[in-house]
């Protein structure tokens, strides 16, 4: 094996590059509570694309070393393909979203689609670096670089969550006649006695206090709020049905302070799990704003 690898440096580069490229993609492909990609056919699509991404990245290096500069056009071709992946994800999720009791919302879908595209590029990069290391310094170096890349990937693949930008606390759900309040924040007017009873019995309230001025803007984003409601509803189930317009999980701002009141109607009324679900919601790229950075003048002040 070792002598074969040394005897065929180009092939070794391509093989190892493809291997690490595809492994990167597979490692980043997790079926978690979001249940997306759907097991098993959605996975097959992404594993196949990961393999292709790996192969493309790996082939580019030996080709360039043999002065075959047109190889770079393959990478452009790959970029085109992966933009297509993003479209595919967006279309599928948007179609499914119309049938959700608590929809993901366009911002969340866009976030997921971007991640799918981005991860294919990461997998190309893994293959490229591995293949480059093999070509320059032999197959041992290739394995070392590939393994290092995988390790870094595992460390950095987790994005930020609500926990990083807001303090999440339980709040009482209070009914004052038809008006529902969560921790003093007015939520909605419920006309029917039966619905009020369900909300009083099933509802769990949260108040999210933003930790900074930037966080205030992010929490106010409607896409981010919908993502929170969707994730909590997915993880805890939802006490709701079609044709029950009043039983709606809801997020509303307290305008004066920027706090976000959250009313969820989980099927499983486990407070610890509910807390974990809310704090673990990913921050959407589309929702993160940095007004404090944008308004900072050059040269201090």
């Amino acid at each position: 094996m070792a002598s074969w690898l040394s005897g065929h440096p180009d092939l070794a580069g391509v093989a190892l590059g493809t291997f690490f490229g595809a492994s990167t993609r597979i490692l980043m492909l997790r079926s978690d509570y979001r249940q997306y990609p759907a097991y098993p056919h959605g996975r097959i699509i992404h594993m196949a694309l990961g393999l292709i991404a790996g192969a493309l990245g790996a082939v580019a290096v030996p080709a360039l070393f043999n002065k075959d500069y047109t190889a770079i056009t393959f990478l452009a071709l790959a970029a085109q393909q992966f933009r297509e992946v993003r479209n595919m994800e967006r279309n599928t999720l948007s179609a499914i979203d119309q049938l959700e009791l608590v929809p993901r919302g366009a911002a969340y879908i866009e976030g997921i689609a971007v991640v799918f595209e981005g991860r294919n590029y990461l997998s190309i990069l893994a293959a490229l670096l591995t293949s480059l290391a093999v070509t320059l310094a032999g197959w041992g170096a290739g394995i070392a670089v590939g393994a290092l890349y995988l390790a870094l990937m595992l460390k950095f693949r987790k994005g930020k969550t609500i926990r990083d930008i807001a303090r999440v606390e339980f709040a009482d759900v209070r009914l004052d006649g038809p008006d529902v309040h969560v921790g003093g924040i007015y939520m909605m007017n419920v006309g029917l006695e039966a619905n009020r009873r369900i909300i009083a019995e099933q509802g769990i309230g949260f108040v999210l206090t933003p930790k900074s001025d930037d966080a205030k803007v992010t929490l106010a984003n409607l896409g981010q709020r919908q993502a929170i409601l969707h994730d909590v509803s997915t993880r805890l189930g939802i006490y709701r049905d079609d044709g029950e317009p009043a039983l709606l999980p809801l997020a509303k701002l307290e305008l004066a302070s920027g706090k976000l009141g959250l009313l969820v109607l989980p099927r499983e009324r486990d407070r610890d799990k509910a807390m974990m679900a809310v704090t673990g919601v990913p921050l959407l790229e589309a929702a993160v704003r940095m007004p404090t950075e944008a308004n900072r003048r050059k040269g201090g002040a």
Binding site: V190, G191, L248
Partner: peptide
């Protein structure tokens, strides 16, 4: 019947 929320 209408799938519309009732408000008091």
């Amino acid at each position: 019947a209408l799938d519309c929320a009732a408000h008091q």
